[in-house]
């Protein structure tokens, strides 16, 4: 009656393994062959658009490398696409046709809208936005994208600072320069953080750098860029810095040289709120605003708490507890007491 325990455990382990493999490979939503082809075509279009956009010419080898695709596979795809009048092949080079450009912009629109959606309306971590948008861009129809666009309140930029193409295919051109090419002493604002390649993007996230952060470039050479921002001195290798685009501050903006993060406020110190970083989005941002974290408001430390976090701050005569990652996103200017 009682089964052999060894056999029972063995069967159990096999079951667990099968379930694990099933989840990992997502057996339940495999794409059909036609869907895979569509996704690959769209990936090629997008890559072509990016290459042309940066005023380069697309060659077969470079494309195959960037898309991690075998040459033969790519050739097959390109022939298919030429048949659909999406691309033109001229000598060694590949060009987008007009309808190909439109198509590519549509995909980019969905991709960036989806990233915007993920950043505003969900709790998905930002390191996952890109991957998820890569999946989603092949699934949404143009109508669904419009619906999304409206429900997000007609956004102009995605959370990385990239412009979202309009339905008509119009796209805002931004005049940003890579951080690695800025002269020392200049005041700039981060306008875009490239989310590819992932390794470098993760490194930038780990440094807690984000869109709209102001910085002062201290030094810049072939290997390293050093700059000051929010009271912290950063040092990035050129390869990382070139994935961050910046713009010089315009006349209306002034460099908040005194601005530091709320998390640096020490017991007994007082400060004025300078603002909430753009990195704090959606419901989180609205909550903090409602609680009175508004430019110019006086804030002081309240309670330290028995653990590392949260810490409570006294603002408009109320004790509000914040976690460290929140306190990192609120900029203050200390008041000398």
């Amino acid at each position: 009656m009682i089964p052999n325990p060894t056999i029972a455990l063995l069967i159990f382990s096999i079951l667990v393994l099968l379930i694990y493999l099933g989840i990992k490979t997502r057996v339940w939503n495999r794409r059909t062959k036609a869907q895979r082809l569509k996704a690959q075509v769209e990936d090629v279009l997008k890559q072509l658009y990016h290459v042309q956009h940066s005023n380069k010419k697309a060659t077969l080898n470079a494309m195959a490398g960037a898309l991690k695709m075998s040459d033969s596979k790519l050739v097959y795809l390109l022939e298919h696409m030429a048949g659909l009048n999406l691309i033109r092949l001229k000598g060694q080079h590949i060009y987008l046709t007009e309808s190909g450009t439109d198509y590519a912009l549509k995909i980019i629109r969905v991709h960036r809208l989806w990233e915007k959606y993920l950043s505003e309306e969900t709790g998905i971590d930002k390191s996952e936005w890109h991957q998820r948008a890569e999946m989603m861009e092949h699934n949404l129809t143009a109508d669904q994208a419009d619906e999304l666009y409206r429900s997000l309140g007609s956004p102009r930029f995605d959370p990385h600072g990239d412009p979202i193409p309009m339905k008509s295919g119009e796209i805002i051109e931004s005049s940003a320069t890579p951080l690695s090419g800025i002269h020392p002493g200049k005041y700039v604002r981060i306008t875009h953080i490239e989310d590819e390649p992932e390794v470098i993007y993760k490194q930038i996230i780990n440094e807690k750098l984000h869109i709209d952060q102001q910085l002062k470039v201290l030094s810049c050479d072939d290997n390293k860029t050093r700059f000051l921002s929010e009271g912290i001195e950063y040092e990035l290798s050129t390869i990382v810095a070139s994935n961050i685009s910046v713009k010089e501050l315009n006349d209306e903006e002034s460099f908040e040289a005194q601005a530091v993060r709320l998390s640096t406020l020490k017991e007994g110190e007082k400060a004025k709120v300078v603002g909430i970083s753009k990195e704090c989005r959606g419901a989180n941002r609205r909550r903090l605003l409602d609680l009175g974290f508004i430019k110019g408001t006086t804030i002081e430390t309240g309670l330290d708490g028995p653990m590392e976090e949260p810490k409570a701050y006294r603002i408009k005569n109320t004790l509000i507890a914040l976690r460290n990652d929140q306190a990192d996103l609120i900029l203050i200017e200390k008041i000398a007491s």
Partner: peptide, 14 residues
Amino acid sequence: MLKGEVSTFTLELP
């Protein structure tokens, strides 16, 4: 499962 749900933190100490 809950990764996609919105997450905020506020705690007022009345």
